[in-house]
Structures are given as structure tokens and as C-alpha cells.
Nucleic acid binder design. Structure first.
Lengths: 201, 201
DNA sequence: GACATATTATATCAAATGATATCTATCGAG
DNA sequence: CTCGATAGATATCATTTGATATAATATGTC
């Protein structure tokens, strides 16, 4: 990458600093003010130099500066309390917030965090209130834990495909497995459990 | 968090989507156009509702929308297998990698992820191999789960301060509590458990 | 000396932008 | 019925903003 001049470096640093603190690139005049120049022409000249050297990408419109390679995606994942099945893309019912997740935990697609309700998986050490990171998918491998839509509720169950049916096994000795015969319901499995997260506060 | 209406959620989703793809919040007119309304008044009304419910923060200026908790700075936290106590700042023994963590999970200080060894907390549903997010601190409140240095090993225990001693209680019926008389050892507690994370892959 | 690059200043524009005011309509709670 | 919350339309304003044109200075290269 071509080296930057002192002024160009200062402008670039200001842009990244602005992105960090405001979540937004600066305007031309904010840049001008920061490098103590008057008017916008100088700032534009610096931006053009930065773009020519490949440090930034500009687009039209206000604050149209982006830094390539800069993870615009610290991957914000929605936290939901309920979902309505329907693959692909389960409909999010009540959004409870967002959470930054390590991109390595996700596997490409639109994952979400489901707040676990009930104790159906307590023997698998998943508790009421835990957050379950879910990847939407319509089926799973034997023994994996999935989100199943049962009576309109999204609950976690262990998945078993057996001859002629699917068995959804709660990990709670006081609960019985749910058998879904082939063709009986098609959108039962909403996704697969990738991770669980528990808070102690 | 207060629930959102359908329209409000659509606006919020559009803002996060814009942040992900453009690295920039949308303008009022971009929002208006996306929800197919004319003029800016409706979009402003929605933003006001979102701000009132705590989903966004607004500041003056163009694209003055921010989503609290959403940081462009993915906070990188070390994953460790062992630590050596010594407050402040336990010494990291074997670094196993790094992991991006939502800044909201941290509480200011240098937290780290400790890979849980053994089943001493299995009755609290913390398993061997789970990741424990730890905040370094030399003591804790009664009933909280802490990292204790016992025989040079970092293990999780439940903390109880009782008359003349500290009791470190494993959550495993086959294990006995550890009593540490006052003044007997000073650097037993290395930190407090904030969160646990389990992977299913 | 001629030329390119970097740097800055001044002045000006059209478009984009946030904000406000006014009005209408729906829906559910009290 | 009234009130509040939600939702929307229309119109208007003062700023902000990106962009352009023009000019000037300095530095290093060929």
C-alpha cells in the first residue's frame, strides 16, 4: 500500500476515530475543522488522495466515506423472545435488543439469539433465560439440538430422524418426546443450536 | 425492553441493516422511502418512539442515529486455559486464542475467557469445556460464582464469606467445600463469573 | 526551467438534510 | 365519549453538505 503523507494520515486517523466514537464517518467540514483548514476543498483533496491510494472508498451522499477491510460487521445479532417458524427466515416476533457476536461463531447465515423459555433441556444443562444462538435451517443431524415450533412456541429439543417420523426429545425426565410423522408438519424445525450463553448478573 | 410495533421494528431493522452494509446510519428520507411514506415527519415520529423506548440514541446532525451497545470496535478478549492468580491482573498462562465479545458484557476492566476444566460446577449447569467470562476482582458477594486458585489450578466455585473464613462450595454433590481461614491465603479469588458460553460444534 | 504532487484559501451552488407546523385517521383503554 | 398512542400526508425552513472553480505556495524530480 502506498505510504501516506502526514496530513493524509491525520485525516485517515480522524475518519477511523470518528467511526469508532460516532459510528459514522465525519463530514467534509468536520474533517476540515479537525485539520484546522478553512473550506472544504482541502479536505476533498485529501480524501481524493486517500481514495487513490486505496485507503478509503467514497460514495455519493453525506458522510460517504468507508474504509474497506474494516469490519463493518462486528455482526450485530438480534435477541428475540419468540419466533414464528417458516423456513427460510423465521419471522422475528419480539425483538429484545441486539448483541455483538464473534463472526467466527456464526456460519454465514442470519443467525439470531433466542431467549430460552422453560426447562425442557435442563438435563442438557440449558436453563430458562439462557441465550441460544440459532442458525436457521429446516433440518438437522441426529442428536443435534434444534429449535422446534410446538404449539406456536419456539422450544429447544434434541433431534432424531427415525423410520417414518421425527422424534423431538426434551432433555427433561418429566417430559415426553414429541413424534412428528413424515409429511404431518413441514415447518417444525426452525434452526439448529450453535451456542448457549448464560448471564450471571 | 418495551416491545416495538411492526412499523417501529421495520425502521429499527432498516437502521441496523444500513449500519451493516454502509457503515452509516440512514437519513430521514432514506428511512421514509424504505417504509414507503412521504415526507420526513413519519420517520421522525418513529425515531422518537424508538428513542423513547431505548432502542436508539439520536444526536444532532445528519445521520445522527446510533444504536447503543453496537460498537464498531469489536472488543477482543483472550481465551485462556490457565491463569496464575495475583490481584490485580492475573497472569495469563496459556493463551488459546481471542474472541470478540459484546462490550456490554464487559464491565470496564480487562476480562478474559477461561476454559472450564472439570465438573466441579455441574450442578450449576456449567460443564467441562464451557467458556467462562471472568472479571478480575479479589472478592465477591455471597453466592456469586468465582474463579478460585486451588493447588495452582483455576477452578470455579461458589463464594461464601462466613465467620472467620471463606467457603468455596463446588456445585457437585460428590465434592466437598473448601474452607480458607482468614489470613491463610490472600490471593485465592482471581475473579468473578460474568457469563458462560457453550459451543455445540 | 518545467512539471507533478501536496497543501491551503476564498467564494459559490445546488442538493440533501433535520426539523417544525398543521391536519387527518385509526385503535384501544378508561 | 375522550384521551393517548400510533400512523401518515403536505408544506415549509434554515442549515448542512458535497462539489466545483480559481488562485496561491512549497517541494522535489526530470
Amino acid at each position: 500500500m502506498q505510504p501516506l503523507t502526514e496530513r493524509q494520515r491525520k485525516v485517515l486517523d480522524f475518519i477511523t476515530s470518528n467511526l469508532d466514537t460516532n459510528g459514522c464517518p465525519p463530514t467534509l467540514r468536520e474533517i476540515s475543522s479537525h485539520i484546522a483548514t478553512k473550506g472544504t476543498a482541502t479536505a476533498i483533496a485529501h480524501l481524493e488522495a486517500l481514495e487513490r491510494k486505496g485507503y478509503i472508498v467514497r460514495r455519493s451522499g453525506s458522510r460517504g466515506i468507508a474504509i474497506p477491510g474494516r469490519t463493518t460487521i462486528p455482526v450485530s445479532v438480534p435477541i428475540v423472545g419468540t419466533i414464528r417458524a417458516g423456513i427460510p427466515e423465521p419471522t422475528i416476533e419480539d425483538l429484545q435488543g441486539y448483541c455483538s457476536i464473534d463472526p467466527n461463531w456464526l456460519k454465514g447465515v442470519d443467525c439470531y439469539l433466542l431467549k430460552v423459555k422453560g426447562d425442557s433441556m435442563i438435563d442438557a444443562h440449558i436453563l430458562d433465560g439462557d441465550l441460544a444462538l440459532i442458525r436457521p435451517q429446516p433440518t438437522a443431524d441426529n442428536g443435534e439440538i434444534v429449535v422446534a415450533m410446538i404449539d406456536g412456541e419456539a422450544t429447544l429439543k434434541r433431534f432424531y430422524r427415525e423410520s417414518g417420523h421425527i422424534r423431538l426429545q426434551p432433555e427433561n425426565s418429566s417430559m415426553k418426546p414429541i413424534i412428528i410423522k413424515d409429511g404431518e408438519a413441514d415447518t417444525v424445525i426452525a434452526g439448529k443450536l450453535l451456542r448457549t450463553i448464560r448471564s450471571y448478573e
